[in-house]
């Protein structure tokens, strides 16, 4: 059994998701290759080589992979795929964009967002916004899987293993990169933070998110949001937590002015401890909260910041 893991990175650094996907891979087998495709990614390949359990790293370093557009990275993966029984990537927007292409080109059914490995053919994954957990068995000879990183731990590190380069520069003839508007933040990444504090429609506007920032500073937290807060333009799209946004499972999740719709719960209900602050005692968020505070957020947030 040979496993290929596609590294998740932003050309600057390897994302912690990669280590979690290797953790998932290590529950399937022990021969694990990581592919790093990008431009100027020597450092990233180095980091990948130090994830415990990785047996070797392949690096495809070329300008054509700079933006990791799905068309040519998928072709590259397919080119390298022969001999692997499992191909895994994290269910990040990059992985979600590329992996189904890989699966279709290999004529395989993909299994999305696995949260557990039962055996080499059998996996668990949430369906219906996490209201049901399906156990599915793949009959394909090559399993194409995306992994919900929040369900797996980060691997330890090891002495770097061998890194081999491939110089296959697959061109992308259909799609061109135009621009990127990166959300800048000094805070930890939502999906990697130990503490997340999220605001919803109850925050009323973007300026009021400053009330969460003071608390986030004290707790070293990332800031998230509900869909309603994103749709209303309070905060950028990449802060959305939920079924169709980011999935988080921090030690502490604080939901402020969020009602607790199933789509929001789907993104945070695996957090270790959940706190809800909402003025409506009947808000469904209280059904999943370990500690609920029924109060006006504008009164209690300044108080909370002071008390920390």
């Amino acid at each position: 059994m040979k496993i290929l893991v596609i590294a998740d990175h932003d050309n600057g650094a390897l994302k912690p998701e990669t280590s979690k996907v290797v953790n998932a891979a290590s529950k399937i087998g022990s021969d694990i290759t990581v592919l790093v495709a990008g431009a100027n990614v020597a450092e990233i390949a180095n980091s990948a080589a130090q994830i415990a359990g990785v047996t070797n790293v392949i690096v495809a370093d070329d300008a054509v992979y700079a933006q990791q557009l799905a068309e040519n990275t998928a072709d590259l993966v397919v080119e390298l795929a022969s001999g692997y029984s499992h191909i895994l990537a994290s269910a990040s927007t990059t992985g979600k964009n590329m992996m189904p292409r890989v699966a279709a080109l290999l004529d395989k059914s993909q299994i999305s967002e696995i949260i557990a490995v039962v055996d080499e053919n059998t996996f668990k994954r949430p369906i219906y916004a996490g209201n049901a957990i399906a156990t599915v068995q793949s009959n394909e000879d090559v399993k194409v899987l995306t992994v919900r990183a929040s369900a797996f731990d980060v691997q330890a590190s090891q002495g770097a293993v061998a890194i081999n380069s491939v110089d296959s520069a697959v061109a992308n003839t259909t799609t061109e990169f135009v621009s990127v508007e990166q959300t800048m933040s000094e805070r930890p990444e939502l999906t990697a933070a130990a503490v997340v504090i999220s605001g919803g429609r109850g925050m009323q506007n973007g300026e009021n998110f400053a009330l969460l920032e003071g608390i986030a500073d004290k707790l070293g937290a990332a800031i998230g949001a509900s869909r309603a807060a994103v749709d209303a333009g309070f905060v950028p799209n990449d802060m959305q937590v939920g079924q169709t946004g980011k999935i988080v499972a921090p030690n502490l999740y604080i939901a402020v002015g969020i009602s607790g719709a199933i789509q929001h719960l789907a993104g945070m209900k695996d957090s270790k401890v959940i706190v809800a602050i909402n003025k409506d005692p009947d808000a469904p968020i209280f059904q999943v909260a370990d500690y609920g505070l029924v109060a006006d957020l504008f009164e209690v947030l300044p108080e909370l910041e002071k008390a920390l």
Binding site: I127, I133, N139, L293
Partner: peptide, 22 residues
């Protein structure tokens, strides 16, 4: 190509408490 083996409810969270103050 994929068999649905079983579908189950997700693990239920233990009921929490309401606190009175910050």
């Amino acid at each position: 190509r994929v068999t649905l083996v079983r579908v189950e409810e997700p693990a239920k969270r233990q009921g929490g408490i309401v606190v009175e103050s910050v």
